[in-house]
Structure formats: structure tokens, C-alpha cells
Design a protein around this nucleic acid. Structure first.
Lengths: 346, 346
DNA sequence: CGTTTCACCGTAAGCGGTTACATAGACCCT
DNA sequence: AGGGTCTATGTAACCGCTTACGGTGAAACG
């Protein structure tokens, strides 16, 4: 790799001038600038990022905090790939890279976990990261709060954080849920149950609120036995559905807080001899890939998956370039009507 | 952040000693070592990675080459999440991080693409990366060859590369396909067609070979009109199936090189009035999530998804720590019998 | 013509580590 | 006692880049 010094020598200038050509081009004479640029291109010069970061205390990397260790094996992130694509492409446009931080240590004690946010914060300083993107932890609001307070720019996904240099992006979970439940009401249902995510999980809580609002708006009396908590996994959808079916007055419609649980409910309903949507209307949330291929195809609330990545990248870049946090980004959540709700003839 | 110099001052030693405590502990006296360690812990000292990388010309980061730009919107990587989890956790154990490299440039000309492997190679040098992991590009063997020749340690997934510091990990695609087709033969089928991936894509080509071997082993005459090329996307599965159905003697069984195409074939068959598996047996490849939820559940060849990440990490670490490449890693591909092949009563 | 201004560029001091080399004792030997 | 070893540490150069500061010469000014 060619260094700045080599270029300087070949051009008969100092290293400072070479550096200026790339960082403050306007301060160097046109001729010399061209000369340096030409030689740089010939030598395929690329400034050494370590040196630059060391000197400027600022790298071109954003850290990704994704703590998978506490995930059970069956867990699928509902939109990881789109998120990463969105993030990567949006960051790329600014010349930034995404660093997936290690979460467990070796002898030298690298590593961090959500249980120890400080570890991550230390890493961002060690690597001079520009900021942190926090994903997949709607249930860890407390830990995320610690990030927000640390002063490093960070944007969280699906969990509200507040801090001087922190913001978040989330879907309009309440609105999406409201639309879903209102749709069921519109189809004539009044016995509408819901399967929530883990209590305390923010998107789940918001979806539950949306469910309640929609019932209230429709003048439907809420019933405690129509609300059971799941954990977003499929198995919990099965269990919840079984509880509903054991009720004296089982619901005629179910809104699940995740597609996985909706699929679980579908399986449980089918196992009990019910036909969906004829005997039971079903709506999920997320619009993951399987939603469109299960039989019947799942009516669900779609999130703007690539939007998360793009919005997160935009927010981070905004904080890096000085303009403070723009405030939370709320992405639209769109009801996608397919077959499981009974609106269509099947 | 505390620096080594601060620790040195507090301990009354030189920065060299502090550095030695962390890098060659055996060369420093027990007492002073303890003292330095204690102070370091008190100050929560973490060596600055930029400085270390600059000095040692070796960072603790591995680059991830994932060129998404040439992907069509509908594309889903069949095992991205498991791959990343496996990679991350295995790298974490060695204190390494994963850097998702930017693929498009800003004004300062960062960025690279598969069309320009040199860009990636440059990035690894700029960032002092320990190596590169190349994913999701079984069709870009030529570009990947360039990486292998560059001298940077790299391990490719699903594409065979050769080089002094390069190796790859892949599934036993031929074996998996062979098992799938043999299974169909065992069920009494002799009119067995296949939908391949894009010609030139290595996993796809290997699966095609497996298909042919299985037919040969069974003494079944291969038919050219029973082999049509798809592109792994669902739509191509639909198109391929339609061509099969238009044949004078349509196949009674179809082996698709990806689950997505198998689902496409399923839809096309159903649209044509066929019932799967009664009128048509179907086997896919990958065992993506939807395979188990489509109706009928898809018989398919499962890949060891987390295994990719773990094996890739292991291979990279082996090359970094000096021991040369271990030679290619071939992961088992396991036939998962579900409902779409007709082996089970449904 | 002396002085100020300004554009341009070089000098050198960092940034925070690593490590080759030198040094200083302590210990052992003859 | 003198010389050789070995251990423990300090000194200082270096990694490659950024940037505050100062200097130079030409243009602009009174």
C-alpha cells in the first residue's frame, strides 16, 4: 500500500499537503492538487484508516449492537435482512461501514452484552465508532436507556430511548394494530381476542394499546380473558389459541402480535377442527415471508422493513454530522389483507 | 478513556511496561504486573484499537463481503441470520469483530463491489482486516477468484476458490441432491424433473450433478426436457413447472434446487389443478423457514446453516494464526422428509 | 518603496500504542 | 574480583495521518 509520504516525495511536496488535498482541497493550489491526485491515483493510494482514526478520533464505522446470546434457537428476526441491506446501503453512501460488535470476550476481555452496556460503550470508544445502532431488543428498554445516557450517538430500533444524542425508529405499532382490529370489527366480529408479545416489550405493548383503542372506538367491551401474553414465538401462539378455545365463549377472531404466533394460532385452530377463516378470523403482525405462503395466506400488518435500516442510518449520520437527533422516526404500518381474516372469498 | 500513559504514570513505570503487561505478560515482573493490572482495572483501561492496529498492522476485524446491490428485491438469503450468528459468536470467541464493508462510494471513493474486487482488497488493507468472508455469490466465481489470488486470507461460502490463503465452505450439494432424487426413485418415480439454479452457480451445478448421478444409479434414462434452469427465485419455479406441465409426458416428481423455486412449482401445479403430493411429488433444497409451513409441508434438503458461520470463522482464524488453510469444509446436507414428496400419508 | 494581506505550503507535534535496542542490577561462575 | 547471563525495565523510534503554527513570496496597499 502506498503511503502519503511516498506520494509527497514523488510530488516534491510535504505530507501535510497530501493530507490537505484529501481533507481540505480548497486550501491547496490547483496545480499541486492535480499533481498529487494524479500520483495518488497511479499508486492507488488509500489513506490508512487506522492512522486516520487515531489522529482524528473518529472512524468511519458504526457499531451494530445485536445481542443474540439470549435468543432461543427458533427465533427469527422479522426483518433482519432488509434491515441490514437498508443500513448498509444508506451508510455506504456516506462512506461508513457497519461493525458487528463481538458479544463475548477472549482473554483480552473484549466483548460486551446487553447486561453490560458499558462494554459496548467502551468498544465504541476503543474503535472510535461514530455511533451505535441497537436492534432486536424491544424487551431490554433499561439496558438501552444506559446507552442513550452514555453520550455516544445511538439509534435504537423498536424501543423508545431518550438521551442527548439518542433517538429511535419504530413502526406505528398502535396504529397498525388499530387498523387490524378495526378491520375485524368491520367484518362483523365482536369477540376479538389478542395474543401479545412479552409484557414490557414496547412494540408489543403498543400493539396491545392499539387493540384496545380499536375495541373502544367500536364500542366493544374488552374482556380480560381475551388477552393472553405470548413471547412472539410460534409455540406461544399455539398455547394461547388453546386457551382461547377452552373458553366458554371462544373468540371468533384473533389478532396476534407477531406472524409467528399467528401461525401458531392457525395450527392450533386447525388441530381443533376449526377452519380459518370460516370459523375463526386471524390477523398477524410483521408480514414476514411465511405470512404469504401459509394456507390460508395470513392477513397481517406489514412493517416498512428496509425503512428501518434507512431511517436508522439517516438518524445516525445526522447526529454524527452535528445536527442533533431529529426526534423519533415512526414508520407506517400497513394492513395487508389476505385470506386468513375472511374478508376475501376463498 | 484512560490511556496507557496514564497507567504508566500512576504505576511509576514506562508505557512500554504497560504494553508488555498486556502483550507479553511473562516478560514482566509479577509485582509490577499486578500493580499495572490493578490500576488498569480501576481506570477501566481499554487499549485503543486504532493505535494498536496502526502499530501492529493487524486489527481484530474480519470483513464481510456481501454484495447486495445486484440482488433483485425479492431475494432472501436462505440462511443469513444463522450464518451471521454463527460467524459472530465464533469470531467473538477470538475477540474478533465482523465488519460489513460498504459497497458504494462517497466523495472519498470508499466502496467496492464484486465487479471490482480490488476495492475490497484495498479496504482490507486500509483497515488492517484479518481476512475476508465472502458470502452469497455462488454465481460470481471469477470475481471470487480474484480475492483468492490477492493474498488476503479469505474464505468463501458456497463457491470453490483456490489460493495460497483462501479456502471455502459449502454444503454437500451433490450428495444432498442425490439423496433427494434417490428418495423419489425409491417412492417409485421414474419421470423425475429438476429445476436448477442459474447455470454457472456452483451449488446449483453440484445439485444438478447429484440429480444426474442419482438417476444414473437408478438406471433411469435422463431426459433433456426434464431439466430447466431457474434462478432460485420463486417466479422461475412457477415458469419451470408450467413448462413441465406442457410436456407430452409431464414428470411425476420434481426436484427443485431451492425451496423458493419449489414453492413456485407448488403454486403452478396447484393452479393447474394438480394435487401435491398425490399427482406430483416435490422436493426442494435449503430448508428455509417457509418449507415447513407451506401446505403441504415441503420435503427438502436441509443445510447446516449455523455450521457455515462457525466453519467460516474457524477457517479464517486458522489462516490468521498462521496455520495455512485447512482445505475446503464440506457441510452435510440432510434430506428432511415432509409431506410434499408423498412418502408420508397425508 | 515599506508594509500589510493573503494564498500556499512546510515543520513538527501529536494520536496511543508496539517493540528493537540499550541499560542496570542480580546472580553465578571461575 | 572480573566477566558472563539473565531478568526487568526504560528509551525512543515508528506505524501513517491530521493539523496548529509559522514562514515565504507575491499581490495589494498607502
Amino acid at each position: 500500500m502506498a503511503t502519503g509520504r511516498e506520494i509527497a516525495q514523488l510530488c516534491g511536496v510535504s505530507v501535510a499537503t497530501v493530507s490537505r488535498v484529501f481533507n481540505q482541497p480548497e486550501t491547496v493550489n490547483g496545480d499541486t492538487r492535480e499533481r498529487v491526485l494524479r500520483v495518488a491515483k497511479e499508486l492507488d493510494y488509500r489513506p490508512n484508516e487506522s492512522a486516520r482514526a487515531l489522529s482524528t478520533k473518529q472512524s468511519t464505522m458504526i457499531g451494530l449492537v445485536w445481542d443474540t446470546d439470549h435468543r432461543r434457537p427458533g427465533w427469527r428476526h422479522p426483518y433482519l435482512q432488509d434491515l441490514l441491506i437498508g443500513l448498509k446501503s444508506a451508510l455506504s453512501a456516506h462512506g461508513y461501514h457497519l461493525l458487528m460488535l463481538a458479544t463475548s470476550g477472549d482473554a483480552r476481555e473484549v466483548g460486551a452484552s446487553l447486561a453490560d452496556p458499558v462494554g459496548y460503550v467502551n468498544m465504541t470508544r476503543r474503535h472510535h465508532l461514530g455511533g451505535l445502532v441497537l436492534i432486536d431488543s424491544g424487551s431490554d428498554a433499561e439496558a438501552f436507556g444506559a446507552f442513550a445516557q452514555s453520550g455516544v450517538p445511538c439509534v435504537a430500533l423498536d424501543v423508545a430511548v431518550e438521551g442527548p444524542r439518542a433517538t429511535y425508529v419504530t413502526s406505528d405499532n398502535a396504529g397498525g394494530a388499530r387498523a387490524a382490529v378495526a378491520h375485524l370489527v368491520g367484518l362483523g366480529h365482536s369477540r376479538i381476542a389478542t395474543i401479545t408479545g412479552p409484557p414490557g416489550n414496547q412494540p408489543s405493548d403498543a400493539r396491545l394499546s392499539g387493540y384496545r383503542e380499536a375495541l373502544r372506538d367500536a364500542g366493544v367491551e374488552p374482556r380480560a380473558d381475551y388477552v393472553v401474553a405470548g413471547d412472539f414465538y410460534r409455540a406461544s401462539g399455539i398455547a394461547a389459541m388453546q386457551r382461547f378455545l377452552a373458553l366458554d365463549e371462544p373468540p371468533t377472531a384473533v389478532f396476534a402480535s407477531s406472524d409467528e404466533m399467528a401461525v401458531g394460532a392457525l395450527l392450533a385452530a386447525r388441530a381443533a377442527g376449526l377452519r380459518v377463516p370460516r370459523d375463526l378470523a386471524l390477523v398477524g403482525f410483521d408480514d414476514i415471508e411465511i405470512a404469504s405462503v401459509v394456507e390460508p395466506a395470513l392477513t397481517t400488518v406489514a412493517q416498512d422493513k428496509p425503512g428501518f435500516g434507512v431511517a436508522a442510518a439517516k438518524a445516525i449520520m445526522a447526529m454524527i454530522t452535528g445536527s442533533g437527533p431529529d426526534g423519533p422516526v415512526v414508520l407506517p404500518a400497513q394492513l395487508v389483507v389476505r385470506d386468513s381474516c375472511g374478508a376475501r372469498q376463498v
